[in-house]
Amino acid sequence: MVVPGADQSDEALAALAASGDGRAFELLMERYQSRIYRLACRMTSETEAPDVLQDTFLQVYRHLEQFRGASRFGTWLYRIATNVCLMRRRAASRRPGESLESFLPRFDESGRHEDTPETLSRMSHLDERIDRERLAERAHVALDLLPESYREAFVLRDLEELPTAEVAEALGLEPAAVRQRVHRARLMLRGYLNDLAGRLP
């Protein structure tokens, strides 16, 4: 008899859970709870995160039989959680904020950076020069301002640190499309942070 335990792979626990083993399901959700919470805070907000987790756990529970082990369990779970976040964001119908387009790097007609090395590196060691809470608050504002499709890709790739191939699988995209979105997000966010650094006293 197979007993669910901490040493078992996600995929083994998922199979046990699908066959009705409640303890295996609990272990599996325990394993991912903090990661999905962080993801939810990054993709929606701290207020919405608990609901995102409940919805995600419910979806996982209902669709366990459909997880066939074709991908890693974590990838499958991230896909579900990402979709739940997207639904929440749509339901909340957020007001469109200012665009981050203005923070993209600027070039002169010869293709050279318009900014000088000094202005381009204003944000160096930003975390040591700004209050932790203020940086957290600004970070959430910036993530919230990203175009929907960039945010998903950026959060999974750069904040959750999934490999590009796994992000592609979770979002149903080609790796090249993931790289393109993550790159655009990085450019906008870099510009946003650099601008923020330039306004510090």
Binding site: M123, D127, R138, A139
Partner: peptide, 14 residues
């Protein structure tokens, strides 16, 4: 350099 710092800054902040 600033492009490469961006993910870690936001990761730690969130």
């Amino acid at each position: 350099a600033s492009y490469r710092e961006t993910p870690a800054l936001l990761r730690d902040a969130t």
